[in-house]
Simulated scan of single mutants.
Amino acid sequence: MTPKEKALGNVPEAQRWVGASINALNAVIGFNGRRSEIANLSQFKALQTHFHVELGPAPSTLDQLLSLLPFVDEADPTLRILIEIRFRYFDILSALGKASSAFTDAPAGGGDEDTGMAPAFVPQKRDGTFRITPYYLSIGALSQVHCLVHESAHFVSDAFQDFAYRDRSGAESDDPDKYKKLPVQFAIRNADSYAYFALQMAKGIDRILSRDE
């Protein structure tokens, strides 16, 4: 079995993870209880962990009225962020739907790109391909699916970066707690945030994976 064939076989499970993430976001966005009760939802707690979203104060009465008018964004800043994250998961789902034409086998190390031991990658210059390397076959089943969600975020747009382990110049970061400390504006563009939230929503696992999982 080639790396591409293995990855294609994992696409349905990756889609299930993304679907679980969308369902979780729907549960929070559509919650009809008291605002203060949202903080106790397991889905919202996970959103805080991976995207660093805070509930914040309720919008003012004026903002609530303005939000009923056309061409005005939702008044609630937390809601805007959650809707933005949900849109991005729909984009990731769409990217996974293109797997049969986008996935391609790539040499170890990335060939013309320095990708180290990456099991898969999207070229820095987006060309519509999602490249699977031989290393993909050496990582565990959960890591394989996690990798597909992560790289699908990169496939969507180069706005998605690896902010959790790189600094703003692109250099490797040596801060092991950077994932926990990302400002929300970076967390919602961090590919790993989408992959790890999806892992937690689909499998109930809230931790960093080792390569053999």
Rank of each mutant, 00 (worst) to 15 (best):
R34W: 07
E37L: 06
L25I: 06
A27H: 10
N26S: 11
F31Q: 04
G19M: 03
G19E: 12
A39D: 14
V18D: 04
K45Y: 04
F44D: 03
W17G: 09
N32F: 01
W17K: 12
N23G: 08
T49P: 00
V18I: 13
E37T: 08
R16Q: 12
I38A: 09
V18W: 14
Q48I: 05
Q43K: 02
G33V: 10
G30Y: 06
S42K: 12
A39W: 01
G19Y: 07
K45G: 10
N40R: 13
T49E: 09
G19S: 15
I29H: 02
L41H: 08
H50K: 02
H52N: 14
A27T: 08
H52D: 07
L41K: 09
F31M: 03
S36K: 13
S42R: 14
V28R: 02
T49D: 06
K45V: 01
G30A: 13
I38H: 06
N40F: 08
A27D: 12
G30P: 00
G30S: 15
T49I: 08
I38V: 14
I22P: 09
V28S: 02
N40Y: 07
F51L: 04
L41P: 11
W17N: 08
Q43D: 09
S21W: 12
A39I: 09
F51Y: 09
I22N: 07
F44G: 01
Q48M: 12
A20F: 02
L25A: 02
Q43C: 00
A39R: 10
S36D: 14
E37C: 06
L47W: 01
A27S: 15
V28W: 03
V18R: 08
R35C: 05
Q43I: 00
R16A: 12
Q43M: 00
F44Q: 00
I38M: 01
R16C: 00
K45A: 09
I29G: 01
L25E: 05
H52R: 14
N23V: 08
F51H: 07
